Computed example of a mutant assay.
Amino acid sequence: MLSRIRQFFSVDSDYKKSTSQYTKTDGTIAVIFYLMLMLSYYGMGRIYVERKMYLGIICNSILIVICIGLVFIRGQKVSSLGLSYKKLKQSLLLGLVLGLFMILANNIIPGIAGGSHFAQISKILYNIFYYFVIIAFMEELIFRGYLQTRIYGLIKSDGLAIIVVAFMFSIMHVPFQMAINNKNALEFVAGNFTLLIFTFFYHIVFNMIQRKYNNIAGNTLFHGFMNWGNSLMV
């Protein structure tokens, strides 16, 4: 039993090998990219407030392109972001099982029990694109595929590296909300502390799936289901 548990939480050998090869330059570029992301999200929030324009799809698409571009500039393979056919089926299967369990337990069953009904088909289909591609894929690519792997160039301790990026992922949600709610960072954190703590641990869970298969497919699917499920019932 214990050996099976250890096997389930094992880390892919190629993941270990690749993360050990990143340099201080890789880590520094990753941190600069993260700061740019934070600034762009704050700016997106200000534009939303002042001009009533939501630029989430455009902004996230640009960030995806920049992230992949940085990998190519550094002479690295796109597979180093977890975009690979390797263990793709296993990764997708785990993400699918976890995702379906989440929306059944957290959304569909409580929703039906509470008298809610499914949203319109057009909205459901649009939200599949938005939550799986624009949100989940972008965040998994950047935070699990890129930042978490490159941070090892600066932080050699595995546990500390995970905690640092989990914190980065958690507060990534602050700038946009801070801007649209006209609050400073401390006010927003104080009012949303529980949500930020959950987000911190979500990174750890998503990263465990990433490390297990060295593939972001499963965590993207699981992440997408978690977000999409919240819009499934009305």
Rank of each mutant, 00 (worst) to 15 (best):
L98A: 02
L221I: 15
A179M: 07
F8E: 14
L100D: 08
Y202S: 11
V31S: 02
L35M: 15
H173W: 11
K183H: 01
E50V: 09
T25Y: 15
K212A: 01
V164G: 02
K156G: 08
N106A: 12
M38R: 00
N192H: 15
M172R: 09
A105C: 09
S231Q: 13
N127I: 01
T149R: 13
L2S: 14
I103Q: 05
C67T: 15
A136K: 12
E50F: 01
F222M: 15
L154I: 05
K87F: 08
Q7S: 14
I142Y: 05
A161L: 10
D14M: 10
R4L: 12
G95N: 02
M172C: 04
F206S: 11
N106K: 09
L98M: 15
E140R: 11
N219W: 09
Y130C: 01
H173T: 07
K89Q: 10
L98G: 01
A166H: 05
G95T: 07
G218E: 08
F200D: 10
A113I: 13
G224Y: 12
F222P: 07
C59W: 00
K86F: 03
L232Y: 10
L196H: 09
Q210E: 10
Q21C: 02
S61P: 12
L154R: 08
A179G: 01
V234N: 08
M172V: 09
K89G: 01
L55P: 00
G145H: 12
D158I: 14
A30I: 09
M102L: 14
I5E: 08
F198Q: 14
Q177F: 08
S13I: 08
I171E: 03
M38E: 04
F118K: 04
K183Y: 03
L94N: 01
L232I: 15
P175L: 04
R4V: 10
L35R: 07
Y126R: 12
L96T: 15
Y34T: 06
I66A: 04
I204E: 00
F132M: 06
F169D: 08
L160N: 02
I142S: 02
F206A: 02
L104A: 09
I32N: 11
G114T: 07
A30C: 03
N60R: 13
V234I: 09
R74V: 00
Y48S: 09
G145R: 13
A119D: 06
I57F: 05
I109M: 03
I197R: 08
V133A: 07
I128C: 06
F137V: 08
R6I: 12
I204S: 01
Y152S: 12
V205D: 07
F9P: 14
T220N: 06
